[in-house]
Design a protein around this nucleic acid. Sequence first.
DNA 1: GATCATACTATTGTCGACAATTCTACCACG
DNA 2: CGTGGTAGAATTGTCGACAATAGTATGATC
Lengths: 248, 248
Amino acid sequence: MIDSVALFSTILSVLLMALPDTLTEIKKPVGLGAQIAETLKIAILEGEFRGGEQLGEHDLQNRFGVSRSPLREAFRELEKLGLIEIIPRRGSFVKRISRYDIEENFPIRAALEGLAAQLAVQKISDETLARMEKALDLMGRAVAAKNINSYYSHHLRFHELFIDSAGNELLKTTLQNLRMQSLWHRFSYQYYQEDLEKSYRVHQEIMQCFQSRDTDPEYLRKLVEHHINMALDSFLHYLEAFERKEGA
Amino acid sequence: MIDSVALFSTILSVLLMALPDTLTEIKKPVGLGAQIAETLKIAILEGEFRGGEQLGEHDLQNRFGVSRSPLREAFRELEKLGLIEIIPRRGSFVKRISRYDIEENFPIRAALEGLAAQLAVQKISDETLARMEKALDLMGRAVAAKNINSYYSHHLRFHELFIDSAGNELLKTTLQNLRMQSLWHRFSYQYYQEDLEKSYRVHQEIMQCFQSRDTDPEYLRKLVEHHINMALDSFLHYLEAFERKEGA
DNA sequence: GATCATACTATTGTCGACAATTCTACCACG
DNA sequence: CGTGGTAGAATTGTCGACAATAGTATGATC
């Protein structure tokens, strides 16, 4: 079995790190609430808190040594990310993730990533294409080395590159949330391992579409969308077999 | 020119009212924060606050007669809805809406409503179909009577019905946000009036697709998506002409 | 007269305390 | 033994005050 903690740190670092392109930006000064939200976000993604568990304000007050005001702000932030659920006068609870959440998330993400690809293919820069190719190359090496950590990292980067190139900020932020939730789901069922070779071949095809000058944007869109929906199918199929075995 | 206030109350009532189907639910007890958020939401949609205007905590404290805690919670809620922007240590500002916001919003909404239609067509109930037909009928009467208020109301309801039928809660809530923003955009440029007849004809076609037993879901999806993107084109075209006239 | 430093004001950030509500354990009653 | 009610504890909701920061106006210096 893979080392889940190492896998986390690798992928989380890719997902959470500031984009290399925006290194010129000065770090924005944020308050306690944002810092706590970031800490809790990682803690939840890493599985420190179980689904359904209540995030008591008193406990966290002791843990972080701050008052409840910034804590409550952090809760709002986490709710916006879809990681917790705030029930008035009851408290804040880490979301339970079920297969239904995954079934709801993937088709939306598929549709929007497909849209992003369609929008991006007409305006993507040669520089970005080169970066995608580099990411794809690293994905290929990861497949050969059977290094799942590495594959996931570069796979995330690959998608991120063309999503950014779509030039639609609202689409980008919407997808960031969906992708983060998706990652969370994946790690909640970490026993599942994708068929890396198959995934890699599809991304090769996607790359070729981006590079070709006379690509039909509609076709590329369908290709990307289908690829994500297939990943869902594969995952659900695996899950079904697992649950059948478990239930017996 | 149409009476914008009356139009507001009509459309907002449709958009904001609890679904008739959920009348059995007991009203959820909400705190001051949620109430204030609701009030501010309507105030912003109605244009009481200008884009870029700061929502000072002190002023609103006097206006509502509450402390700053629930106010700050309301701000978080409004930020989640995309109506304001919170800049740390600076304050909360009503979002400036430009044509770019609209250009970003519509394609995403189009893609997701198309997806919703595709998902819905295979599982929609006869009861819901009847309701859609009723809404469509009322849309037709509104066109004949040139009653824009009425048309928008039933048009919103029509879309709401098949979105609900998709059976994907995440998709539903995501679209609710996008649709609310879209409505806000529309009212910010309230001089624009859609071609109701053309819109009505498209919806007739959509209705036929939903009713036919051998409809290609992919075709319906494209139809819905295209319809929304056409509305964007029409709007942008109008805006361009308006800006050219204004700029001269 | 322009620019930079500085004091002052206004606004947001954080805190601890009190109020309101919900949850829990216990007890009486059928 | 199960049910309903009540008192207590635990938790969230709200408040007013103080701290920290950003914005503004004033004045000194070149």
